[in-house]
Design a protein around this nucleic acid. Structure first.
Lengths: 136, 136
DNA sequence: GCCGGACCTTCCCATCTTTGGAAGGTTATC
DNA sequence: GATAACCTTCCAAAGATGGGAAGGTCCGGC
C-alpha cells in the first residue's frame, strides 16, 4: 500500500510518517520503481504502536526505545516498566507544576472584580506587588 | 544599566531579553553611542512582570496582551480576568489530558511483573491488544 | 598607555515535533 | 491526452529559548 493508505489505517499523517522515517524512528520503507514508499500490514501495526505511545506522551526518542524493546523477544519486562514509570514521574512533575500555576491564577482571579473598573489584583500580582486583600 | 544588570535584577536572561525585544514583546531599548542597550528601573519592572506571567504559563503573545492591559489605565479588570480565566481553562484541559495518560500508564505498569521475563502488558497495551488480565 | 577580563554586539545553528507549501513526477480514470 | 488524486523532495514556520562564534567596548591595574 502507498503512504496515504498506511496513514489512514494507522492514524499517523503521511507527513509525519516521512518525518519518523527521516529521524530513524521507523525503518526506511521500500520503494516502487517510481519512488513511491510501499507499506505492509506490519508497518501499519508499528505505526499504530508509535501513535499510541506518542499519545501517552512518550517522546519520539522514548518511543524508539519502546519499539526496540517491543521487537526484542529477550528483553526483560523490567526495562519497559522502568520506562513507563519514568514517564509517570514526568507526568506527576508536570501536573504539580500546573496545579501550582492554577492555584496562583485562581487566587488572583477570585480577588478580581472583573467589572468595568480598572482595579485588578491580577495585574498587581503579576507586577509583584501583593494582591490587595483589604476587602477580604 | 546594561543588559546584564537588567537580567540579574529581573531574572530574565540577557539572551531572552534580546529575544523579547526582537519579537516586539518589549520595546527596543535605547542604546549608548557604542551600541549597548540601556535599561532603567521601569524596564526591570516590566521584565519582572513578563517573567511572572511567563512562569504562570502565559504565552509570549498572551503576555503581550497582559502588558498592554497593565499599562492601559482605562482598561476594565474584566478583560484581564477573562484572560486569566482562559488560562485556567487551558491548564484544566492540559491536566485532564495528563491525568488520562497517567491512568493508562499506571494501569499498564501495575499489570507488569517488572522482572526478567519478557511478558509485558505495557507493550501489549501499546500494540493495541488489550492488556492481559488473566491473572487478576 | 596598554593589557586582561568581563562585558556587550550581531548572526547563525540547534532544540522538538510536526505542519504547510511549492515545484514537480506518477497513477488511474474518463 | 486531459484531469484528478496521488506521490516525491526540499524549504520554512511554529515557540521560546540556549549555545557559541567573531568581534567591539569598558574598566581596573600596572
Amino acid at each position: 500500500m502507498n503512504i496515504g493508505t498506511a496513514a489512514r489505517q494507522s492514524g499517523v499523517p503521511a507527513k509525519t510518517i516521512r518525518y519518523y522515517e527521516s529521524v530513524g524512528l521507523i525503518g526506511a520503507a521500500e520503494r516502487t520503481a517510481s519512488g513511491y514508499r510501499v507499506y505492509g500490514r506490519d508497518d501499519v501495526e508499528t505505526l499504530r504502536f508509535v501513535q499510541r505511545a506518542r499519545s501517552l506522551g512518550f517522546s519520539v526518542e522514548a518511543v524508539g526505545n519502546l519499539l526496540t524493546l517491543w521487537r526484542d523477544r529477550s528483553r526483560s519486562s523490567a526495562e519497559v516498566k522502568a520506562l513507563a514509570e519514568r514517564r509517570v514521574a514526568d507526568i506527576d512533575r508536570k501536573m504539580a507544576e500546573l496545579a501550582e500555576m492554577r492555584a496562583t491564577l485562581l487566587y488572583l482571579t477570585e480577588r478580581c472584580h472583573g467589572d468595568a473598573r480598572p482595579e485588578c489584583p491580577i495585574l498587581l500580582g503579576l507586577a509583584g506587588k501583593a494582591a490587595a486583600s483589604d476587602s477580604d
